[in-house]
Computed example of a mutant assay.
Amino acid sequence: MANKVRPVLLLPVAWSPYPEFTHGLHDGLPLLPTKWAPPHLLATRRQLNALGKRPGGQDPVALLYGYSETGHCQWFANLYLISRAKPKLPMTPRKWHALNLANLARRECKRCHRARDYVIPPTFGMCFPCVEASENTNLSNENGADPWAA
Rank of each mutant, 00 (worst) to 15 (best):
M1I: 04
M1H: 12
N3H: 11
N3K: 13
K4P: 00
V5Y: 05
V8K: 11
V8N: 05
V8T: 09
L10K: 15
L11R: 11
L11D: 07
S16P: 01
P17F: 04
P17D: 09
Y18E: 14
P19T: 05
P19L: 08
E20I: 00
E20N: 03
F21S: 12
F21Y: 10
F21C: 05
F21I: 02
T22D: 03
G28M: 05
L31S: 05
L31D: 03
L32R: 03
P33L: 07
P33V: 02
T34K: 07
K35S: 12
K35E: 12
W36D: 09
W36Q: 10
A37K: 00
A37H: 02
P38A: 03
L41D: 00
L42S: 00
A43M: 07
A43I: 01
R45M: 12
Q47E: 15
Q47K: 09
L48M: 05
N49V: 01
N49E: 15
G52L: 09
K53M: 10
R54G: 01
P55F: 02
P55Q: 07
G56D: 05
G56T: 01
Q58S: 05
P60N: 12
L63E: 03
L63N: 00
G66H: 03
G66K: 03
G66C: 02
Y67Q: 14
S68E: 12
G71L: 14
H72I: 01
H72N: 12
Q74S: 09
W75D: 11
F76K: 11
A77I: 00
N78C: 12
N78Q: 14
L81Y: 00
I82M: 04
K88L: 14
K88D: 03
P90Q: 13
P90L: 13
M91A: 09
T92P: 07
T92V: 04
T92M: 11
R94I: 05
R94G: 01
K95N: 06
W96N: 08
W96S: 08
W96L: 15
H97P: 00
L99R: 14
L101A: 12
L101Q: 15
L101M: 14
L101K: 13
A102L: 15
N103Y: 08
C109R: 06
K110M: 10
R111M: 03
C112S: 05
H113S: 06
R114G: 00
A115T: 15
R116A: 11
D117C: 04
V119T: 13
I120F: 03
I120E: 02
P121D: 14
P121E: 13
P121G: 04
P121V: 02
P122L: 09
V131W: 10
E132Y: 04
A133T: 04
E135R: 13
N136C: 07
T137V: 09
S140N: 08
N141R: 15
A145C: 11
P147R: 10
P147G: 10
P147C: 09
